[in-house]
Design a protein around this nucleic acid. Structure first.
Lengths: 256, 256
DNA sequence: ACTCATTGCGTTATCGTGACACAATGTAAA
DNA sequence: TTTACATTGTGTCACGATAACGCAATGAGT
């Protein structure tokens, strides 16, 4: 079987291609139907879910590794990707886990760089849910979105990594604009507000929210209104990219 | 010579003890005479200065590695130490740099784990300047404090690492109290203000600063005033540890 | 006794924020 | 066609935080 051969090569020869002991894990956030989602993979052998992760090529900056892995799973490029924490607990990946995995697949090995300790560098990404084409990697049977408040059982410490990512994202929110990658080009103010409310997990006042967002100058109001909605039609907005990027750099002294 | 033998062992056998490809670098901040200082080491061979760094034992969490290294250089334990960024540029450490170093020392080697690529995890520490006993490691001839605005020429990308650490520290300042490790137990309000001004690199209004700090509840005013100063004697304060720690956890919605 | 830099304590104007009112709009039910 | 109703657009107002600044008190040096 093709897959088993590939896997065996990875276990036996991977260290010639990748850096030992170090991996990257991406927490990929999307926003759909007023829910914050995370893209997860289901392992072919164990029934558990995991983050989209991978290894670092011997001559590759880690930011590129994260981008490369993100592209493989989602097809997306040039996405905002933020390094947020290194997870290094010596018990986080064990020889036992790997050997159980191999046993389930039907491969037997004694020695491998994959049995050694790994530390992993956590990144989070903010992507447009509708533009993602989820693609499982070769050790996974499926690749799906999960709502942040309804996560399945996960491998290793991946649940902790998601929790940390969310914490960092919330902190980021106070200083930097958000939404450019998460929403469509044109969006309504209620949609933007729902995004903030979902991430922060609290209600915000409609009118005050609008006033503050507009005062930052990161959005431009369009003449067009959203069609086909019940009740009053909200105006569309789009991001003012120059101001948005300025706010990314400088921060935007904000309080929601 | 004892030192050369030790070094050779490190280059030849170090990978049996430490994780390959990964190191830790500490940016150690202190505060003295109204100056923000960084503790640096001078290499025995090259005349260049570097951060206090080291490697990760095979079974050691990286936070512990950073603490261990900090203790070796300063004698201090249980210090606030914050992981802030991973530096991974493939060109940041090169075989050439290592071989030049060995050549200057008078050791010749062809193969070593030290010639491989390293990524480094940056930590910053806030320590009490007067309590530090700077101790060079065995590849360094000296260990000294430098003012942040008067740094010497540095090895590799260590200058970038300091710059990033300072950025993170400034960000931290908006959410968390600071000073407990940096100042003496008893301190005056002007001293605390100078600390903030130095880190943020901007002037603050004396009276407004005092009001805000007191309103957070992290300090307690003492009856005692500072003696032997020209002009009016300022009161001493000390940190209210329960409130201080609470503010460390919860943040303290702050604006200076 | 006088000078003067520095500190403690206080005042005022302004702005950002939270809380809320009301009219406008467009779909769906009557 | 009319009415009901949820939702949006715009505006107001009170409150608290903040910035800017005044003034008296202190204590070493002259």
């Amino acid at each position: 079987m093709e897959f088993e051969k590939e896997l065996k090569t990875h276990y036996l020869k991977g260290h010639e291609k990748y850096l030992r002991h170090v991996s990257v894990d991406n927490v990929i956030f999307g926003f759909y139907q007023n829910n914050l989602k995370v893209l997860l993979l289901k392992s072919k052998s164990a029934g558990l879910w995991s983050l989209s992760g991978g290894f670092i090529l011997k001559d590759e900056p880690i930011d590129n590794s994260a981008q490369r892995i993100l592209k493989e799973r989602t097809g997306l490029e040039k996405i905002f990707l933020q390094q947020f924490h290194v997870f290094s607990d010596p018990g986080r990946s064990t020889k036992k886990v790997n050997q159980q995995f191999l046993k389930n697949i039907g491969v037997s090995l004694d020695k491998s760089w994959m049995f050694e300790r790994f530390i992993t560098i956590g990144y989070y990404a903010l992507v447009n849910f509708t533009k993602v084409k989820p693609a499982p990697d070769n050790i996974s049977q499926s690749c799906e979105w999960f709502s942040i408040d309804n996560l399945p059982e996960m491998m290793l410490d991946h649940r902790d990594i998601i929790d940390e990512a969310l914490k960092s994202l919330r902190l980021q929110l106070y200083f930097h604009p958000i939404g450019y990658n998460l929403l469509e080009q044109k969006f309504t103010m209620p949609e933007l507000q729902k995004l903030y409310e979902t991430i922060l997990d609290k209600k915000l006042d409609r009118r005050n929210f609008q006033r503050k967002i507009i005062s930052t100058g990161i959005v431009k109001k369009l003449k067009e209104t959203k069609k086909g909605v019940a009740h009053k039609a909200p105006f569309y907005y789009k991001f003012d990219l120059p101001n948005y990027k300025k706010a990314l750099q400088a921060g935007m002294g904000f309080e929601l």
